[in-house]
């Protein structure tokens, strides 16, 4: 299964939208997309509303991206509304690592 990635910039905020499963197989593609979008530091919003599966490798990619962005005064925010995906963030404690929004507009405005 491939990961579909779409990137754009809106109001100075880089937005990456991904669709598909985030696992150890697709994690390199996710890492690459986040590195490209966040290359100049700053604010990055990752839209996960079309993602319904995530594993620990993909979580690790997100946490690494957040650590990298924060050293450059940037931040990675997430948009997700799948309750089961949210549960994975809660169990791992990673819900405290990212601002999480259910709406894209909300995340862009707050970023």
């Amino acid at each position: 299964m491939n990961l579909l990635v779409k990137s754009e910039t809106r109001e100075g905020v880089a937005i990456v939208q991904v669709e598909g499963d985030l696992d150890v197989y697709t994690a390199p593609r996710l890492r690459e997309a986040l590195e490209e979008a966040g290359a100049s530091g700053g604010r990055l919003v990752l839209d996960l509303r079309a993602v319904h599966f995530i594993d620990s490798t993909a979580l690790g990619v997100l946490v690494s991206a957040q650590q990298r962005l924060r050293t450059e005064d940037g931040q990675l925010s997430l948009v997700l509304d799948d309750p089961y995906l949210l549960k994975i963030f809660r169990i791992t404690g990673f819900d405290g690592v990212f601002p999480i929004y259910s709406q894209l507009e909300e995340a862009v405005t707050a970023s």
Binding site: D55, S56, T57, L59, G60, V61, V63, S64, I88, I91, T92
Partner: peptide
């Protein structure tokens, strides 16, 4: 090694 935040696999299995 590039992903120091891996290692959550086992805790996830146990929790779920």
């Amino acid at each position: 090694r590039e992903c120091p935040n891996r290692g959550m696999g086992l805790p996830l299995m146990v929790a779920l």
